[in-house]
Amino acid sequence: MSYAYLFKYIIIGDTGVGKSCLLLQFTDKRFQPVHDLTIGVEFGARMITIDGKQIKLQIWDTAGQESFRSITRSYYRGAAGALLVYDITRRDTFNHLTTWLEDARQHSSSNMVIMLIGNKSDLEARRDVKKEEGEAFAREHGLIFMETSAKTAANVEEAFINTAKEIYQKIQDGVFDINNEANGIKIGPQHSLTNPGMSSSSGGGNQSSGCC
């Protein structure tokens, strides 16, 4: 179970857009999508491979905690990636994106990678938000965009993995300070040993000052 990096994600969006289902769909492949079954979880973890590196994704659902300001803001800050989910069959969930995004931007580190997800793409017949609208919103706000279906598992993998790739790229670019766990990124046990050079260059000095 060793990994090079651990990325923490959060999933945000209105209730009922299928966040926890997406989460389960991605983190536990054993739960095959079945039509007469809606099942979700609030936490999940899964290992993926990017660029030959084992990367563990930890996904935390923030559902049900919106009433406490302290909780939401903390969640945002602790994550390296966020999946912002709306339901393509419910326009109101799309309309609320701006609020969600503002919240996320406000509280998260500016490096947080945000992916916009239009969920329930299997319900084409009831579609209420055009794909183009989602794309436009994403383009406008600098997000990655994808339509998924937790029901059919369509694009679910891609959504999470693309987000991870983006984060990984940012690490490679030195945007993230990987030694700062508050970023939602953690270096794996074995990885940290091999990486002292990087760490010192990217802010180890600060840390040393911080701890004494």
Binding site: S70, R73, G203, G205, N206, Q207, G210
Partner: peptide, 20 residues
């Protein structure tokens, strides 16, 4: 100004506490 990242975490942490 080297450790702004860390500082901002600490500040945010303090804010988290207060908000909590």
């Amino acid at each position: 100004h080297n450790s702004r990242e860390r500082l901002s975490d600490l500040v945010a942490e303090h804010l988290d506490h207060l908000h909590y």
